[in-house]
Design a protein around this nucleic acid. Structure first.
Lengths: 235, 235
DNA sequence: CGAAAGGTTGAAACTTCTCAAGCAGGGTGG
DNA sequence: CCACCCTGCTTGAGAAGTTTCAACCTTTCG
């Protein structure tokens, strides 16, 4: 595995480095997936887990009318799997991703062999729940401007360091449509919100990506506190 | 422990009955808590877990201006704990509750002794995340009428059987203010939504509680699907 | 070169919120 | 026992935020 993947994984794992390595070693295959593709095929959904090695992915729900709600972003180091109990939810890539796949049976064996893995998967899952709660509050109680700024801060923080091109900030491979799907706003309104953020020189826009050059300033503007992300203290 | 607690626990546990029993046996103490009280004192937050034996509780975030967002309900059988990484979040009761408390150190010992417990806590946590995703979608994408109906359906389903007074339905010990806090709507608007539901004879209102006599009809109205709750198939 | 996808802008409509006032019930102290 | 108060519920009217619709522009890609 290329060194840069490992570097990324160390920064933001919800599992420890050693635990991720166990999963990577047991992985049956690693695939490179293009942007905007499904991560799990229909038939894999119920019995396959995966570990994001690079790129940006998300979990989303599709409604009958085609509307979409993104409910979580997945960054390098995140462990995820399909859920047969949420059949309308899917995992998909936003940028090109490299993903390690693992059959759930193999995962069960690993958990038998390394009891700490299941305990730490529990911890990781609790961390995921903390992020979900924060999204809930964000969508439920913050107005459009703060909501968008807050979400950008979260994503940028979780991706921190994985973007060599923008030191101290990052380029998010997210279109305005996708940002609307994640914040539960219309694309038209997202566009107006981003225009205001651009006027304040907090973000720069490019087709299909959002560039943040001064993350600390955006965090101050969004009143963003990152405790809930449970980052390593050294960061 | 009274038999009715056990009966309730069997219906809706996210942990299996046996696992809950292990936790109950290890519990240092069980307390009866009045309605609208905090479940964990400030100093317990970081090192105490609990298991709801009866009653209805919730997790919520308090904002500086006093506003509140309820992010989850806790029903009998649910396992929960404080989270030092989300200092603005709290656990509180809505009705009178009986709760078993457990020190996290003791929980760690249990997990060493019964490896399956940690694996199933992981499963339980994933189930909790599924509920959170559904709340996110509910608040993000449904209009006030559907949102309220949907949430009532979820809560009623999770509480199913614990209300002997309303066979086939239930009485939710939730005020309009609390429902507003959970759905991210204003109390004024909740009142108007509930008036419409009452006109359609889908709910009956009492001071500080909402009574559903015909849950199947309300579910049809809200287009509520309960797969995500992962109920036992026998139900 | 044309088509498709993403972004931008304006105007009107709609949902929900806020403010404000009043009502109803339950509990408490005199 | 009554008066009062506090909390929760109800209703109206205006304001605010967000969506929808529609048109057009820009970039990318085949």
């Amino acid at each position: 595995m290329p060194a840069r993947f490992v570097r990324k994984l160390e920064k933001f794992g919800r599992l420890s480095k050693a635990e991720r390595q166990v999963i990577i070693d047991a992985s049956q295959n690693t695939r490179k997936i293009a942007a905007r593709k499904s991560i799990l095929h229909e038939d894999e959904n119920a019995h396959t887990s995966c570990l994001i090695l690079s790129g940006l992915a998300c979990r989303y729900k599709i409604f009958e009318d085609g509307a979409r709600q993104i409910v979580d972003f997945l960054v390098p180091g995140d462990f995820c799997e399909g859920d047969a109990n949420q059949p309308e939810y899917h995992l998909g890539t936003l940028s090109q991703c490299v993903i390690a796949y693992l059959d759930n049976d193999v995962l069960a064996d690993i958990m038998d062999k390394y009891p700490r893995i299941s305990r730490n998967l529990w911890r990781a899952s609790k961390a995921e729940a903390a992020v979900l709660r924060e999204w809930l509050v964000n969508i439920g109680r913050r107005n459009a401007d703060k909501r968008v700024a807050y979400l950008i801060c979260e994503l940028c923080t979780r991706l921190d360091g994985s973007d060599a091109d923008v030191p101290g900030g990052c380029a998010l491979p997210v279109s305005q449509i996708e940002l609307a799907d994640a914040t539960a706003l219309s694309t038209v309104h997202i566009n107006r919100v981003l225009s205001r953020l651009r006027e304040k020189r907090l973000v720069t826009l490019q087709r299909r990506s959002i560039i943040i050059k001064d993350l600390p300033r955006l965090k101050a503007h969004a009143q963003f506190q990152d405790v809930y992300l449970q980052l390593p203290k050294s960061a």
